[in-house]
Amino acid sequence: MKKIGLFFIFLFINFGALGIGRLLMENGPLTEWYMELNKAPWTPPGWVFGTAWTTIMVCFSVYMAFLYDTLTSNRIWGLFAVQFLLNISWNFIFFNQHLITLGFINLILLSFLVFYFLIAFFNTLKIKSLLVAPYAIWLCVATSLNLYILLYN
């Protein structure tokens, strides 16, 4: 029962992050600035982003519920908080401020943190650690898209 409560807490926070990120980017993907950028040929259609982030946040919420239930600590909350801030700030940095290089750095830091979650707690959570894999994979895609924009614009 405790894990279910934790799952819903993390789900609420994670979907809150998506909502805040959406607000911070305003109409980002629909702006003239973004539309005129040279984008990577592997840039997925817009609907993929929503589907991917929904899947990622559900999986990450389950992962965080297991992790926090197993290792209740301020360290876990601290790492989660940094992940939260990096996640939502990219939207503002990239889409709102058009700071492509800083957005790329932000994604690199977020990727390191998510891979840290995947690796550092693997011995504790075992196979459940793979719930972080969709997040890690998506960040590799997102980082490559951001890098392409950085290099070709």
Results as ranks from 00 to 15, higher is better:
1 M>E: 13
2 K>H: 15
5 G>K: 15
6 L>S: 15
10 F>I: 09
11 L>Y: 06
12 F>N: 08
14 N>H: 02
16 G>K: 11
17 A>L: 06
19 G>L: 08
20 I>W: 07
20 I>Q: 09
22 R>K: 05
22 R>V: 13
23 L>K: 05
27 N>G: 07
27 N>W: 05
30 L>V: 03
30 L>M: 11
31 T>P: 00
31 T>D: 00
32 E>R: 07
33 W>F: 09
36 E>A: 08
38 N>S: 06
38 N>P: 09
38 N>C: 02
38 N>R: 03
40 A>Q: 09
40 A>S: 14
41 P>E: 12
44 P>F: 02
44 P>L: 03
44 P>E: 01
45 P>G: 06
45 P>W: 01
46 G>P: 05
47 W>L: 03
48 V>N: 10
52 A>L: 11
55 T>H: 00
58 V>K: 09
60 F>H: 02
62 V>S: 05
62 V>L: 12
62 V>M: 06
63 Y>F: 05
64 M>G: 07
64 M>H: 02
65 A>V: 04
66 F>N: 09
70 T>M: 04
70 T>Y: 07
71 L>M: 10
72 T>F: 02
77 W>R: 08
82 V>F: 00
84 F>L: 13
84 F>A: 11
84 F>P: 15
85 L>V: 05
86 L>T: 02
87 N>D: 02
88 I>H: 01
89 S>L: 06
90 W>K: 01
91 N>R: 00
92 F>H: 04
92 F>L: 07
94 F>V: 10
96 N>M: 03
97 Q>M: 13
100 I>Q: 12
100 I>V: 14
101 T>R: 07
102 L>T: 10
104 F>K: 08
104 F>R: 13
105 I>P: 04
106 N>R: 03
107 L>Q: 13
108 I>M: 03
108 I>E: 01
108 I>G: 05
108 I>T: 00
109 L>C: 07
112 F>H: 01
119 I>L: 09
119 I>M: 07
120 A>K: 04
123 N>W: 10
124 T>H: 12
124 T>M: 11
125 L>H: 09
126 K>G: 12
126 K>P: 15
126 K>A: 15
126 K>W: 11
127 I>N: 10
129 S>T: 01
129 S>L: 02
131 L>C: 14
131 L>A: 09
132 V>L: 01
135 Y>F: 13
137 I>L: 14
141 V>S: 04
142 A>P: 14
142 A>L: 15
145 L>F: 02
146 N>I: 13
146 N>K: 08
147 L>M: 15
152 Y>L: 11
152 Y>V: 13
